[in-house]
Each structure stands twice: as structure tokens, then as C-alpha cells.
């Protein structure tokens, strides 16, 4: 098991390396440089800037410097903000993103799994149909549509919750963004869970458990839950990725000062350094989350665990 975890960890290295390399070359191959704006800069200024950002060195050397910096946690300068480099900006935004994303993740997993089990046990009865409708809503309503709807209902019409802003991190400011972020994933996870649970409940070993006279509780919890969780667990890695990208929209709509908003602003202002730095940061985060999920997955499977 430990060996497995180690091996799995080693596989993340080429992933990250490829990701960083691809990003670097996309950036360097971009038509014009980062400083070819609408108004051409005076040549001397441009040269100064390029020297400052190492753009005048050969490509290979630039690449080496870049990788070296990334490895030290230096994601490079922001081309538009002189005061903060990329890493510093990310540090500013990170807590907000983590709180919103983390809360949404936990809620999505918890509610998704519970709803999925519920649907499987009551399948083709009314609780299942209620669930199916909620799932459907979650699947077809993109977060950028869900957000204004929620703002309209809970913020404007009912006036229960603020339509945006961070407040001081008060709960009522967080509720709506977290709900918008979590709902699509509750839908996806419960759909997966329901399907997997139904399949497991049809398997031979559940028939054996029933023939032993066990009640539904122990059958579901002890015999069915673990195998039924497998597809859900393998979805958690990608789900974390989707949540991060989803948080970009949510932060923008609700005006939260997280990484997503920096990212969007940078992208709209063509701040390559910031965009690239953020993408790399996101990727490291997602690759790490995937790693954790895979190890968790292996732990659930006794055949892998006993190796």
C-alpha cells in the first residue's frame, strides 16, 4: 500500500512537468510578445522590460529559468501589477477560494452520497422521483444561470441573503455562492452514487447477506457502501477540478476576492504572467487532489491494498 502510494506519487512528476512545459511554450509562442499592446512601446522601454523579464535570453535558457523558479514556488511576475507578483496575488486570493471551494466540495460529496443512497433504496418510488428532478435541475442549470436565479429569489425577492460580497466571512454571505457551486456536483455525485448502489445491490454477495437475515441497515452500510463508493471516489479528482474552475464564475458573480477573480481579470487584461501562474497553480492543486483520491481509491480496494 505504501509502495503503491509512493509509485502513484512519482507519476505526478511527469504530469506536472508536461503541464508546466506546455504552458511555457504556449506562452512563448504567442503571437507578438506580452508587450505588444495596442500602442507600440518605445523600443528602449520594451528592451528594458524584456531584459527585466528575461525575454531577451535564448528560449532554452528562459525555459530553465522558468522551471527553476516554479520549483521554488516563484510563479513569476505579473505583467500588469508591479506591486504584487503572481505568487503574492494568489496568496491573497487563496483563503477565499479554499473556503468557498472546500465547503462546496464537502457539501457536494456528503449530500451527493446520501441522496444517491436514498434514491437507490427508494428507486422508482416518489422520493426517487423528487431526487431525479433535483438532479436534472443540477445538470441542466449552469452555475452562471443558477447564480442570478438564486440572487433573484433569495436576495432580491425574499431578501434573506445578501446577493454578493464577502462581508467579513459571515455565514450568510457564503451560503449562496457555496450553494451555487455545490448544486451541480450534488447532482452528478448522487447520480453516480445511485447508479453504483443499484448495481451493487443487485450483486450476488448482497443476496448472500440478505439470505443471512441481515437488516437493510447493516447490508447497505457494511456490505454495499464500500464497493458502491468506488465510482464516486474516482470522480472526486475531476470533481475537484470542476469545482475550482466553477469557482471562477461564482467568485466573479458574487464579487468574492478569490483567485478566480484575479484569474478572470488577468485574462481579460491579457496579463500572461498572471494567467500562466494561476493555471500552473490550479494544476498543481488538481494533480495533488487527484493523487489523494487515487490513494483513497486503492485503499478501498482490498486487492490493491494487500499488495
Amino acid at each position: 500500500m505504501l509502495l503503491y502510494a509512493l509509485k502513484r506519487f512519482l507519476t505526478t512528476i511527469p504530469v506536472l512537468w508536461i503541464a508546466i512545459t506546455v504552458c511555457f511554450f504556449i506562452l512563448r509562442l504567442s503571437p507578438g510578445g506580452p508587450f505588444d499592446g495596442e500602442r507600440p512601446l518605445p523600443p528602449a522601454v520594451k528592451q528594458n522590460l524584456e531584459a527585466h523579464y528575461n525575454l531577451d535570453k535564448p528560449l532554452v535558457q528562459q525555459y530553465a529559468i522558468y522551471v527553476g523558479n516554479v520549483l521554488q514556488g516563484d510563479l513569476g511576475p505579473s505583467f500588469t501589477s508591479e506591486d504584487f507578483n503572481v505568487a503574492e496575488q494568489l496568496k491573497l486570493g487563496l483563503p477565499y477560494t479554499i473556503i468557498i471551494g472546500g465547503a462546496a466540495f464537502i457539501i457536494a460529496v456528503l449530500f451527493g452520497i446520501l441522496a444517491g443512497i436514498y434514491g437507490a433504496l427508494w428507486r422508482n418510488a416518489w422520493p426517487d422521483y423528487v431526487l431525479a428532478s433535483i438532479i436534472l435541475l443540477g445538470l441542466i442549470l449552469p452555475s452562471f444561470l443558477l447564480a442570478p436565479i438564486f440572487q433573484l429569489i433569495f436576495g432580491v425577492e425574499l431578501g434573506w441573503l445578501p446577493v454578493g460580497g464577502w462581508g467579513d466571512g459571515e455565514l450568510r454571505y457564503i451560503v449562496l455562492p457555496v450553494a451555487v457551486l455545490a448544486l451541480p456536483h450534488i447532482a452528478r455525485i448522487s447520480r453516480l452514487m445511485r447508479g453504483a448502489m443499484i448495481e451493487v445491490l443487485h450483486s450476488n454477495f448482497i443476496r448472500t447477506a440478505r439470505s443471512k437475515g441481515l437488516n437493510t441497515g447493516p447490508i447497505v452500510l457494511r456490505h454495499a457502501l464500500k464497493p458502491a463508493l468506488m465510482p464516486v471516489v474516482s470522480y472526486l479528482g475531476p470533481a475537484a477540478g470542476y469545482l475550482l474552475t466553477g469557482s471562477i464564475v461564482v467568485e466573479t458573480i458574487f464579487g468574492l476576492p478569490g483567485i478566480g477573480r484575479y484569474f478572470i481579470n488577468a485574462a481579460l487584461n491579457r496579463d500572461y504572467g498572471m494567467v500562466l501562474g494561476t493555471v500552473i497553480f490550479y494544476m498543481v492543486l488538481i494533480v495533488m487532489l487527484n493523487l489523494i483520491v487515487d490513494i483513497l481509491y486503492a485503499w478501498l480496494d482490498p486487492k490493491v491494498r494487500s499488495q
Binding site: 504530469v15 485574462a267 491579457r270
Partner: peptide, 20 residues
């Protein structure tokens, strides 16, 4: 697997930003 582990939408954004 490697590409799958990466959030592709970020790549699309990156491409859009850089190549117009």
C-alpha cells in the same frame, strides 16, 4: 491519463487569451 488530470478548460482559456 496525464491530460485527463489537468483542467482542460483552463487550457482553453489560456489559448483564447493568447491566440485571440
Amino acid at each position: 491519463d496525464i491530460i485527463y488530470a489537468l483542467p482542460y478548460i483552463l487550457f482553453v482559456i489560456l489559448l483564447m487569451v493568447i491566440f485571440g
